[in-house]
Simulated scan of single mutants.
Amino acid sequence: MTKIKRDPDEQEAQPEASSGDRTYHELLVNLNPIAQPLASRRLTRKLYKCIKKAVKQKQIRRGVKEVQKFVNKGEKGIMVLAGDTLPVEVYCHLPVMCEDRNLPYIYIPSKTDLGAAAGSKRPTCVIMVKPHEEYQEAYEECLQEVHALPQSV
């Protein structure tokens, strides 16, 4: 195979585009049309911190199949959904399940960041954070802010 030579200017521009984390506003470009209610940048950071604490206590459910199973069993918690998941049909039934069972749910912009907060190298499109006394204060704070947001119609 032969290598394609590029301009020196093009090689310099490439690392800038792929380096570091993308900002919150850059992540909003990839959102699904159903991603409502969407967490603010501040609430997104709080949710990531709460998820990291929950992982240490093994109090999360990760992935559509696992979350759906435990919602059907009646487990309580905050459901955090990634707003950039495609196709939407993968998880569009979960908000309806949450509304039927009065569970709070919120969308965040990035499935990659959601997976990273859960301590995984793989992106994940949904996580349920269960309450626990070790991080009760952070959980309650997130829960209040999620309830304060208007639900989608």
Results as ranks from 00 to 15, higher is better:
Thr44Tyr: 04
Leu31Thr: 02
Asp113Cys: 15
Leu149Cys: 02
Leu149Lys: 04
Asn102Met: 10
Pro87Val: 11
Glu10Gly: 01
Asn30Val: 02
Ile108Val: 15
Glu145Ile: 03
Lys76Ser: 13
Glu137Ser: 15
Gly83Ile: 03
Asp21Ser: 13
Lys49Ala: 14
Ile108Thr: 13
Tyr105Thr: 01
Ala116Asn: 10
Leu47Arg: 03
Asn72Leu: 15
Val126Asn: 05
Glu16Gly: 11
Ala13Thr: 14
Ile60Met: 00
Gln36Ala: 11
Ser120Arg: 14
Val67Ile: 00
Glu141His: 15
Tyr139Gln: 11
Ile106Glu: 05
Val80Ser: 01
Leu94Phe: 02
Ser110Val: 06
Lys56Pro: 03
Asp100Gln: 12
Lys111Thr: 14
Ser40Met: 07
Asp100Lys: 10
His132Gln: 07
Met97Val: 08
Val80Asn: 05
Glu145Gln: 12
Gln144Glu: 12
Gln36Tyr: 11
Val55Lys: 05
Thr23Arg: 11
Asp7Trp: 05
Ser120Gly: 08
Glu12Tyr: 15
Val90Asp: 13
Asp100Pro: 06
Ser19Lys: 06
His93Ser: 10
His25Ser: 10
Val29Lys: 12
Cys125Met: 06
Ile51Met: 00
Val90Ile: 13
Val29Phe: 08
Asp7Lys: 10
Lys73Ile: 12
Ile4Met: 03
Lys53Glu: 06
Arg61Trp: 01
Glu141Gly: 12
Pro87Ala: 13
Arg6Ser: 12
Pro109Ala: 04
Lys3Ser: 15
Gly83Pro: 03
Gly115Pro: 03
Lys52Pro: 01
Val146Thr: 08
Val80Arg: 01
Gln136Asn: 10
Cys50Ile: 03
Met79Ala: 08
Asp100Trp: 06
Val29Leu: 06
Leu81Gly: 03
Val67Arg: 04
